[in-house]
Amino acid sequence: MEKNPSIDIDYVANLARIALTEEEKKTFSGQLGDVLGHIEKMNKLDVSGVEPTAHAFPLENVWQEDKAKNGFSADEALANAPATREQMIVVPKVVE
């Protein structure tokens, strides 16, 4: 049997911005290898000349009138923020 493809888990976890534990890395690598193995089946299909489908019913240029509408007040918009001060979101220092 062919070997399942493998994922460079550190590289991908970094792109996804998730701190994975060593155990998660090990488990996911194996499981996703199996899933990719199943997906590889697709490679026996010739899709040259086939257009890709992004949406089942292609809709193009869905415009809205450029008109001002009421939105949230600052307090409403910040109601779920983990940390705020003077109607701003507080985050750890970005620039040293």
């Binding site: 697709m42 490679n43 899709v47 890709p52 489908t53």
Partner: peptide, 9 residues
């Protein structure tokens, strides 16, 4: 991209 093409099929 390939998956989107197979989606068409």
């Amino acid at each position: 991209l390939k998956a989107q093409k197979v989606r068409t099929l």
